[in-house]
Structure formats: structure tokens, C-alpha cells
Amino acid sequence: MAMTTATAISVQRRPHWWQQRTLSRFLRHRLALIGLIVIVTLTLACVFGPYLLPHDELTVDLRARFSPPLTDDFYLGTDPLGRDITSRLLMAGRISLLVGFSVMLISTAFGTLIGVIAGYFRGWTGVVLMRIVDAFLAFPSIFLVLVLSAFVKPSPFMITVIIALTCWMEIARIVEAEIRSLRERDFTVAARLAGASARWIMFRELVPNAMGPIIVAATLTIANAILLEAYISFLGYGIQPPLPSWGNMLNSAQQYLTNAPWLAIVPGITITLAVTSFNFIGDGLRDALDSRSDLQ
């Protein structure tokens, strides 16, 4: 392989996500921008909203059960125990968003680490790591979720861990494929010839260049995690009462679909809104990090 110059290296690199063009491309992606605004608003509402509401999320009042939306100051109505749905929705958002973010952080960090190492060291290390990834992928996620949740007392923390356990493999595979292709590029070869350590090459050269797909996968993981939490609640293994989560709110509402439809509609729309927004952000990032989209 021919010797490469410093200029050649920068040409080969993908644009960083913080680079001007990337940012402007993202901002031009109107849907992604809307998604970002929705998420920020939702997060702020969940963090500060509960302090502004007249009712807290745990007070049971059986006289007020099944109040439809806009009854007195129950803006979104009450649930079967007469608790205020608005404040439950926002408190639930704290848990669901936190679970989503934490799953994203844990699984992205772990998946990236495994993927980078496996992609860079191609001998037995890579083989063994990737076969471990395969082994995890071979377990249907429903199996892992159900069987593992039998071992632990369900809490937001344990549910985060269990969901993260089922999410990191995708990221590891994406990163490994990316690194495998990047490590043959000229700038990596140059760095190696210049005597850089493996760690330096992996985390200073390769990871930043693989950042695009990682960020995209990460946003999609949040969306996935929020849905998985709802899904686990559907199966009865979710966050324990009286703590609300979007998933268990939606789940406990299904039997009231005909007589108290707002119980299902409110969390259903919120989940859809949040997940859609994360997906839009992911989509926007994908376009923004893809320089080809300028060609149009």
C-alpha cells in the first residue's frame, strides 16, 4: 500500500457530527428538528411539570375514579384508583425516558467497546467476541427478558439492565462492521506505521470516524427501549405499582378501552410521540452524517 499524506487522511475521514455542514443538514431536516423539539419539551415537562400540578401521582381517591379528562383540575382525567393521570403521565415519563436514556448509554458504550475491539483485533479475539455477540443474538429477546426477570426483583434499575442486555448486540455488530472497513483505510494504516498504540488508533482514530452509525443506532435504541418497557409491562413483568411508567399505564388501561378510553389513549399517544420523535432524530442524523445528501 502506498504511503499516504496527512491531507489524504482528512479527505478519507467522514465529517464529524459537530461539523458545520452536518449541523446545518440536520437542522434542514424539518422532521428531525420537530422531533428534537418534542423530546426537549417532553423532558422538561417531565422534570418540572409535576411540581406545577395540583395533584400528586400517588394519592388514591376512590370517589374520583374514572373521571374523564377536564373534570375539575384533572386535566387528563383519573385512573381506576382516582389518581391524576396528568401527574402520573409526567412521573411515568421520568421513568420511561430515564430507562430509555440509560439503556442507550449502557448498550451503546458496551456495544461500541466490543465492536471496536472485535473489529480491530481480527484474530481469535475478534472471532471469540463476535461469536459471543452471535450467542446473545441467538437468544430471542423475549426469552432473555422473561427468564432474567424471574431472577430479579423488578425495579427501574433492573429493568434497564435487562433491556440493555438485549440491545447491545446490534450496536456491536454495526460498529464491528464499520471498524472492519475503516481499519483498512489509509489513515489507519498511516497511524499504525507511525507507531501509534492500538488503543490510540481504536479510540482516537477509529471510533470518532464510526461515530455516525453509532449515534444513529443509539437514538433508535432509546426508541426501542421505551417500546420494550411497554412490552414487558404488557407481559406483567414491568415496573411495580404504585410507580407509574408509560408501559404499565398503557397496559393497565387495556381492559378499560371501551368504558374509559382516555386511560389507553393518553399513554398510547405519548409513547408514540416520544418514540416517533426519537426515530425522526435518528433519521435526521443519518441524513446529516451522510455527505451524499448534499448532492441532491
Partner: peptide, 10 residues
């Protein structure tokens, strides 16, 4: 995006 985000059981 909306289709992807609607919980199936709902």
C-alpha cells in the same frame, strides 16, 4: 415512523 412507534397490542 408512527407505525413503527405504535405498540402492537394497543
Amino acid at each position: 415512523m408512527v407505525a413503527l412507534s405504535i405498540p402492537t397490542f394497543w
